[in-house]
Amino acid sequence: MRKIDGSEWRNLLPFLYKNREFSMFIIGDIENTSPDSDNMEIYLDGDFDSPRGILLRYYKFLILSDGAGMNFREAAGVVRRYEQAMMLSGTISGIDRISPYLQEIREEEETLRFAVLREPNLNAAGFEVRRATTEDAEKLLAFLFLIEEFHATDEESFMATLKDGSTRRYIIEDQGEILATAASTSESSDMAMIIGVATGKDFRGRGLASAVVSKLCEDLLAEGRTPCLLYDNPEAGRIYNRLGFREIGKLKTLRFKKR
Rank of each mutant, 00 (worst) to 15 (best):
N11E: 10
L13S: 03
K18Y: 06
S23P: 01
I27S: 03
I27C: 02
D29W: 08
T33E: 04
F48K: 02
R52H: 13
L56P: 02
Y58D: 07
K60I: 12
S65L: 11
D66C: 02
G67Y: 03
G69V: 03
N71G: 05
N71T: 06
R73N: 11
A76R: 00
G77N: 04
V79F: 03
R80C: 11
R81H: 11
M87K: 10
L88E: 07
I92C: 01
R97I: 03
P100E: 15
R106S: 13
E107C: 05
A115M: 08
E119I: 13
P120G: 08
N121G: 12
N123V: 05
A124H: 01
A125H: 09
A125W: 07
G126S: 06
V129L: 05
R130V: 15
T134V: 15
E135P: 11
A142G: 07
F145H: 14
E148L: 04
D154S: 10
M159T: 12
D164M: 06
G165D: 05
I171D: 03
I171S: 02
I172T: 05
I172C: 04
I172A: 07
E173W: 04
Q175F: 01
I178L: 08
I178V: 13
A180P: 00
A180F: 02
T181Q: 14
T185I: 15
E187F: 03
S188L: 07
D190Y: 08
D190I: 10
A192G: 09
I195K: 02
G196L: 06
A198V: 09
T199Q: 00
D202Q: 10
R204L: 03
R204I: 02
G205K: 07
L208T: 01
L208A: 02
V212F: 00
S214I: 04
K215A: 10
K215F: 13
L216M: 06
C217G: 02
E218L: 02
E223M: 15
R225K: 15
R225T: 12
I239K: 00
I239T: 12
I239N: 01
N241E: 14
N241H: 12
F245P: 05
R246H: 12
K250C: 04
L251P: 06
L254F: 03
F256L: 01
